Computed example of a mutant assay.
Amino acid sequence: MKKLTALLLFVLSASALAAAQAKPQALVFAYNAFAPWKTFDSQGQPAGPYTDIVRELARRMHLSLRFLPCPLSRCLAAMQNGKADLMIGVQNTPQRARYLDFLDPPFANDNRLAFYQRSGDSRDISHYSDLLPLTVGVVEGVQYQPQFDADGRIRRDAGPTVESSFRKLVAGRVDVLIDNEQQSALLASSEEFAGRVQRARLTLDNPHPNRLALARHSPLQPEKAEFEHALRAMLADGTISRLLAFERARIR
């Protein structure tokens, strides 16, 4: 009887050890730079409040964090094929929901969308209809606002980054660009673009809440409830509000 008990304890211990070893210990973060929320510091290290949110989430989940820098389209592909586990700030669409599991609760509400035109451009862009004769610079793969995204009348010129859209605007290759209000304000005031672009009067509301997305093919998918529990705790204890408020105050 003692031998049987010892054997059962050994089997249970071995099973528990194997399960612990099977659980992934690294969280692969598909990292598309999105200043000021996801960027790189002067040493080339990932920085910004969205980055810090994921760092804290990984800490609470007892996972090491590995960054996978990539443009948006490549990051989405990495999530789709299981090479990355998590993204932050990417918008939910029916197509993306096939391979991205958007976590609840949202960590923030999105802000407004701004338009920029060249300095000295006298055209008044204050109504949505003012966009129709123009070429609008957009970022490839980004979903902006339902009306704008579905409007086949809008002529779009897609680039890989917001910075490339600003450069096209300055060079006269597009008439106007659309971007997140806070990110565009930061870029417009940068050394490269200050005095060369001006904000148009038109603003669009962006109704999408911001969520973290876990890849449906991620080996961490069974831990979804734990991710959501940790996220809820970060909202409840003010961690997320503190990180986001610091950045918003800095760029005002």
Rank of each mutant, 00 (worst) to 15 (best):
R66M: 11
L68W: 10
L68D: 13
P71W: 00
L72Y: 10
L72N: 02
L72K: 12
L76N: 09
A77I: 07
A78R: 02
A78L: 04
Q80L: 05
Q80A: 12
N81F: 09
G82Y: 02
A84P: 02
D85G: 00
M87I: 15
M87A: 05
I88A: 04
G89A: 07
Q91S: 12
Q91M: 09
Q91E: 09
N92S: 14
T93W: 01
Q95W: 07
Q95M: 09
R96T: 03
R96D: 04
R96I: 04
R96C: 02
A97P: 00
A97S: 14
R98M: 11
R98Q: 12
L100R: 01
L103W: 02
L103M: 03
L103C: 08
P106N: 11
A108W: 14
A108P: 07
A108C: 04
D110N: 14
R112C: 03
R112A: 12
R112N: 06
L113Y: 07
L113V: 10
Y116V: 00
Y116T: 01
Y116W: 02
R118V: 01
R118L: 04
R118S: 03
S119Y: 12
D121F: 12
D121N: 15
D121P: 13
D121V: 11
S122Q: 10
S122G: 05
S122D: 04
S122W: 04
R123T: 11
D124P: 03
S126I: 01
S126P: 02
Y128D: 11
Y128S: 10
S129I: 14
S129E: 15
S129D: 15
D130Y: 10
L131N: 09
L132I: 15
L132A: 14
P133V: 08
V136Q: 05
V139S: 10
E140Y: 10
E140W: 07
E140T: 07
G141H: 05
G141L: 12
Q143P: 00
Q147P: 00
Q147M: 11
F148L: 15
F148T: 06
F148W: 12
F148Y: 15
F148P: 10
D149V: 00
D151Q: 14
D151E: 09
D151A: 15
I154K: 14
R156I: 04
R156T: 05
R156W: 03
D157C: 08
D157N: 10
A158W: 03
A158C: 07
A158H: 02
G159E: 13
T161D: 04
V162E: 05
V162A: 12
E163N: 03
K168V: 13
K168I: 13
K168M: 15
L169S: 12
L169Q: 12
V170G: 09
A171G: 02
G172H: 07
R173Q: 08
V174K: 10
V174M: 03
D175F: 07
